[in-house]
Structures are given as structure tokens and as C-alpha cells.
Design a protein around this nucleic acid. Structure first.
Lengths: 359, 359
DNA sequence: CTGAAAGCGCTTACAG
DNA sequence: CTGAAAGCGCTTACAG
């Protein structure tokens, strides 16, 4: 800030009034005469006066800031959410501190400390994954918290999520209806609650379809495309490989598609792949990805909206009332899914060329 | 902050010392006896004391915050940069306010105002584009500013960029060397300086190769894949369409690829496409994209590093010394580029199937 | 309608 | 080594 900023005191001096009057005039306090107010405002504008939010926050006990913690800003799901958060925050006069926890426990504690020292009014956790030990630390701050894409029980904890279980059922049912019976799940090893729910949806759907679960078809990947690539390689190396794969998210699906290409196989001819999220690239992959669309930006907006609502009321009143908002997703069928191959012995990994999707 | 936080005064009371002593003990001032310091620190820890940065900043005139303004957080280039920024900021005890200007003039002024009111110590502009009228507003804050991917002359303005002109030359030369002569450029209508430089590199390279510039081959797209899609459609509708396209960035290239597919044409068989940035999806597109890799996260780190350096010295001393750091990119050849087709009359938009890339 | 006073939570000369 | 005082830039009862 370079010590340049002008203060209320200076304006008071210039306007020949007390600094209390300046403060009131600037905040449009009705007790100040219109002309005095105008005069002061003009002077303030002329001299480029801008109130110090820090000074104000000391007395109002509100900083008009919120902390937004993400596990990776480079994750398009997260970026979509943060866009919505920022939009609503801004519209309501809040600024957002962005912190990247990277899922690293030490870093997470650091984030908590910094948010505390900055006295943020509330916290938003926009993570596609979330260390489960993390939330208790956040809770100590005794301010409202809204989780996006994960939920946890307890005071101050609110959430905005898609119905992960139902959404997973839709995805797996899509595969079953195409005729697949060898369906694998590539989960996210740090996906926490959302991963468990998607897994549960997968299991239930197989069960409903009378398909026996195979434990070797359920794997967990590290976050991001590379993780998906590794686990897909593993699945492809199985004696009897799956004919379809449900991925925890689009990033993992991207990696899976790459592994399939690398093995000289083709999606969906040899193996169908579905993702989750519908990040913007899902329609640009090779092949375009069938996925579950999450309204990411809307989720961010909604989460920030809840926070604002919570912040408008006395904290004690809101601490035990937990919001758990479910938004709905949408199956987007593109070209990474098709009926399974008829001939079981086509699995020669070198010769054949991709056949076009059956669509 | 819910008014819960404990203050130095409370600790002073508990420790039976003055609050000045507490302040010193907590900051490890050597003038405080080791045992008093320890005792106070223990008490502070027990009671979960955390200093108020707002209060501290009032006297130190440093907020330990920086403002980071982006045009779109959903742009993977920006996300990569912000990741690096956050990392270094955090390591040096700075917190980052994220603001999304959306390239909207009104919103930009708002961002300036908010940063000013929060008395941020410095500003980072991580934009793939930047309204050119914007920087002068920022400059009024009289704090160091570092631009990423754009540069502007003037006090307090520093930058970290790739050498756009040279990088553009590399990309276009790659196309020329493959044998292309009908090369188009899809620029970014709000790309400002970086767009102008890439365009200049394009022009120079054509000239060096003795290829006449065709003004109908130079178009400007709105940011993002949709913009690229529109402009590619336009180029494809030309009586004589180009055989290769250089895109301002990967996002535009993504849209271009989609338009090509939609026209039942194929890249690179019918038309070669190159992007810029090497965002993580570039290797997952259909076909995988040939592009210019920018070290996005490293650029973010570097920019924040410069800001920290600048903030460590008296402002007056740094105000006229401008850093303009160039980082180098790298041509990444994937599968979206190939030699042009021999037969000029293969342009029938319906019949033919893609032929594999000549690679 | 306006002002003087107190206070928010800190840091830092200035004394002792 | 420790404390009392002043001050950072605000807001807000309390007086008048």
C-alpha cells in the first residue's frame, strides 16, 4: 500500500469538519445535512479517498472477505466452481482469498491459520477432493463453512453437491443398457465422500442388473489424468479386461482414453468410457466423452449464496442449521460409449483399426 | 470472524504483563527474556490466539496481501499461472485476493477499487487477454504491478511473458516447413499486445518464406473455444480455404478442431492446426494438438517472485525500474499438423473419410 | 445536524 | 527486560 492512501482525518481537515462527520457523510448517514455530505464527498473524490477496509473491519468485526480453499485450481471442475463463487461474492461486496491446499495436510493447516489471521467471514471449500481430517480444523474457526462436492456432518458445515449416488447410477445404467456386463470403476483415491457415493451407485446398479461385482474391477486413481492413465493401464493388463469403465471424473477419463489409445485399442470400439463433470474439454477429446454434467458455476454461485445468507444472520442462530443442497446433473451422451464388441477374441492388441462408434 | 477471536490484551491479562510485552514475546523480540516469552507463547497457544492481520497492517502499512486479477479463471492458461502465483505467495507469507475481471470495463474498475480498499501490497495480472485501458487504472494505485502474458510500458509495470513474436515464428515456420502456403491466423480479439506480437510473427514468417499475406486469412476470434469454432467456420466457408491454421491459443484451436470435424473434414488430413500454450488437454484432443508450450506455472512463480523482490525494497526506489522477463517456450509436435494434401480438388465437404496423420 | 471520546487489535518509539 | 503512551484509520454510542 506504500503508505500513500489518504485518510478520513485528512478529508476532515480539508473540509473543516470532524472526522466523525466525514465518516458519516461518506456512508450517507441521514443525520448529515445533504449539502455537507455532498461537499465532503466531493472533496473525498477529488483527493482519491478510499476507505481502509482493514480499519473498518476492526470496529465492525466483519472483514467482507471469504476464504476459498481448493485442492487444485488447475482442475477445470474447481475453476468452474470458483468462477461462480467469485461472481456472487463480488456482487455482494465480498472479496475472496484463494488458497490452494493441494490436499497436503501441512499446507491445509497453514491455510486455516492464514484464514484465521485474516479473520475471513466465511469459508468455501471448492474441492474435487478433500482430506477428511481437514474439516475439523476449519470448524474450529467458528464461522460458516460451505463445502462443494463433498459433505460432512456437523455444525457450521453446509454443502452443495450433485446427488452423487444417483448420478453414478445413471452413468452405470447407461453402460448396462448398452449391453455391458464387465464394467470397471476407476475411483479417486482422495475423493472421500463423493468417491464413496459414486462407488455405491456403481455397486447398486450392478446388483440391480444382476451383475456380480468383481473386486479387481474397482480401482482408485491418484487425481488427474495421469492417475487415470495408470489405472486404466492396469485394467487393460487384467487377464479378462472390462468392456466399459466408469471414471470418477473427466480428468481420470481423459487419462483412461489415453491409456486405451496407447494400448492400440480404441474407445468405444474396444472399451467404453464414461466420465463425470462435463468439464469444457469433454466435448473435444478423442472420442468426445460421454459424461455426467455438473452445473459447476451454478454450484459455486449457490454455495456463495448460502454463505451470504448465513452471514446475514447472527452466527449463533445459524450454527446448527445445516444446509445440504443437492443439484441435479445430466447425462450427456457423446461418442465414448457404444455396445460391447460381439467377438470376445478380438482383444489382439496390435492389428485392428478402430471401428466407428455405433451411433 | 464472528467476534470470537482473542486479543493480545486478553493474553496480557492472563499472563499478568502489559500488552506490549505480549506483542514482543509473540514476535520473538530479543529484548524479552526467554522465560517470559515462552510463558506468554504457551498461554497464547493454549487460548488459540491468532494475531489480527488487519490490526497489524494498520500500523505496519503492509497487508501481506496481493491482488491477482484474471480475465477468466476457467482458462487453463490462467489457472496454471495462478497455481504458480499462489505457491510462491504462500511461501512468502502473502495471501492472494482473486478477482475475475471478465474483460468487462465496469468490473475492472470495481476490481481496482476493491484492491485499493483492501490496500493490497502489489498486483498481478494473470490474463490471457487484457483490456488495454485497464492498466492505467491499476497504475494509479502506486504499487508494483506485474503483468503476465502481456506487457505495457510505464512506471510500476513489470511483466513476465514468453517471446510471443519468436514463438509465433516457430509455429508458422513449422507449418511452412511441412509445405503449407495457405496459412491462416485466428487471433484473439481481446488479446492485445500478445495478439499483436503473435500476428507480427505470423506476418514475418510468411514474408520470409515469400508467401503473400492474404487479409482474408487473418481473423480475430472471441476468447475461448466457441470463438475459435466460429472463425474456423468462416475460414472454411472461404472460396479457397487455408490448408493450415495458426491459432492464438489452444482454446481457440480446440474450437477450430471442432468446426473442422463438424464440416466433415479432418485435421490434419484436410487442414493442419496449431495452438499455443500447451494446456493440459492439448494432448487429449482429437487429434492431439501441435502447440507452443508455455511454462505457465513457472511464469506465475516468476511473476510473484518479482513482486516479492519489489516489495522488499522502498517503493520509490523501484518505481522506475521495470522488469520485463522473457521465458522461452517449446514447440510440441503432436498430430494436428501434417503435409498439405496434394490434390487441390479434394475439398468435397461430404464424402471422404479422414486419412491418418502423416507421422 | 455535528463533535468529542472511546475503542477495535495491533506495533513501536520512548522511558525507565 | 518491561511498561505507558501514542497512533494506524475507521465506526459509533453519547452529548449537545
Amino acid at each position: 500500500m506504500a503508505g500513500k492512501a489518504i485518510s478520513i482525518k485528512k478529508i476532515a481537515h480539508l473540509a473543516q469538519v470532524s472526522h466523525s462527520t466525514v465518516s458519516r457523510a461518506l456512508r450517507n448517514n441521514p443525520r448529515i445535512s445533504a449539502e455537507t455530505a455532498q461537499r465532503i464527498q466531493r472533496i473525498a473524490a477529488q483527493h482519491g479517498y478510499h476507505p481502509s477496509l482493514a480499519a473498518r473491519s476492526l470496529v465492525t468485526r466483519r472483514t467482507q472477505t471469504i476464504g476459498c480453499v481448493v485442492t487444485s485450481i488447475a482442475d477445470p471442475f474447481v475453476a468452474g466452481v470458483v468462477t461462480g463463487v467469485e461472481e456472487v461474492a463480488n456482487r455482494h461486496g465480498y472479496s475472496v482469498f484463494l488458497a490452494n491446499s493441494k490436499g497436503d495436510a501441512k499446507r491445509e493447516l497453514d491455510v486455516v491459520r492464514v484464514f484465521r489471521e485474516h479473520r475471513v467471514d466465511g469459508i468455501l471449500v471448492a474441492a474435487s477432493r478433500l482430506g477428511s481430517e481437514y474439516v475439523p480444523h476449519l470448524r474450529k474457526l467458528q464461522i460458516p463453512i460451505v463445502l462443494i462436492n463433498n459433505l460432512q456432518p456437523g455444525d457450521f458445515i453446509n454443502s452443495v453437491t450433485i446427488d452423487n449416488l444417483e448420478a453414478a447410477r445413471v452413468m452405470v445404467r447407461h453402460l448396462v443398457e448398452l449391453g455391458h456386463r464387465e464394467i470397471a470403476y476407476i475411483g479417486d483415491e482422495s475423493g472421500d465422500q463423493s468417491n464413496r457415493e459414486r462407488l455405491a451407485g456403481y455397486c447398486q446398479t450392478l446388483q440391480d442388473a444382476g451383475i456380480a461385482m468383481r473386486s479387481d474391477f474397482v480401482v482408485e486413481a491418484a487425481a488427474g489424468p495421469e492417475g487415470g492413465e495408470r489405472q486404466m493401464e492396469h485394467l487393460l493388463s487384467l487377464p479378462a479386461r472390462p468392456s466399459a469403465v466408469f471414471c470418477y471424473d473427466d480428468l481420470i477419463a481423459l487419462g483412461a482414453l489415453k491409456a486405451i489409445r496407447r494400448a492400440k485399442l480404441s474407445a468405444p470400439a474396444d472399451i467404453s468410457v464414461v466420465g463425470f463433470d462435463d468439464i469444457f474439454v469433454a466435448s473435444y477429446t478423442d472420442p468426445p466423452l460421454t459424461t455426467m454434467r455438473q452445473p459447476m458455476t451454478a454450484m459455486g454461485r449457490r454455495a456463495m449464496g448460502i454463505l451470504i445468507e448465513l452471514l446475514s444472520r447472527p452466527f449463533e442462530e445459524t450454527r446448527t442449521e445445516n444446509w445440504h443442497v443437492k443439484v441435479s446433473g445430466e447425462l450427456v451422451v457423446r461418442e465414448s460409449t457404444a455396445r460391447p464388441q460381439k467377438t470376445k477374441e478380438n482383444q489382439d492388441a496390435t492389428s485392428q483399426q478402430p471401428t466407428p462408434a455405433s451411433r
